[in-house]
């Protein structure tokens, strides 16, 4: 079925996946990715997965505290993820070396804290391959 998006109809709706390579504080592309994701959803398309890779794993770091006059990308992804049931996947290998850990990984690696933000999950690079295979489009937001 065609989907309604505002005053116009999109046909056919597409499945998008996004690969995000940059941390919120390091490059504009992290915020470009969020804007792009919002626009994709506004137009009635589906987001199959957002895969955070390399420094992009910092988007899922719950202990980062950006200044109040800057956009908190982690919080924005959490809200968008909840509204649209997004699959927000953080590369587990990239996350370990940057200290982005869930409770299970923190215990397994004997680290003092877990800081993976709610709404994100850790998984392997296979989830990026799966996203490529199952999406109409993959858009990469570089470092």
């Amino acid at each position: 079925m065609p989907r309604r998006a505002g005053h116009f109809t999109i046909w056919p709706p597409m499945k998008f996946s996004l690969a995000v390579y940059s941390a919120p504080h390091s490059a504009q592309s992290a915020s470009s990715a969020l804007r792009f994701a919002k626009t994709v959803l506004q137009q009635g398309h589906e987001i199959y997965r957002v895969f955070f890779y390399c420094d992009g794993v910092q988007n899922g770091n719950a202990t980062a505290a950006p200044p109040q006059d800057e956009i908190d990308l982690t919080a924005e992804w959490q809200v968008l993820g909840q509204q649209h049931q997004l699959d927000l996947v953080i590369c587990i290998a990239a996350a370990q070396r940057r200290g982005v850990l869930n409770q299970r990984e923190a215990e397994r690696l004997e680290r003092p804290a877990a800081n993976l933000a709610d709404g994100f999950e850790l998984a392997g690079l296979g989830q990026l391959t799966d996203a490529v295979a199952n999406s109409d489009r993959l858009i990469t937001f570089g470092s």
């Binding site: 592309s29 626009t39 994709v40 137009q43 398309h45 489009r137 993959l138 858009i139 937001f141 570089g142």
Partner: peptide, 17 residues
């Protein structure tokens, strides 16, 4: 909005960064 539309009209999308 037009950016997203361009992405639906083209395949593949290649990012150079």
């Amino acid at each position: 909005a037009r950016w997203v539309q361009l992405c639906t009209e083209h395949q593949p999308i290649v990012s150079w960064f």
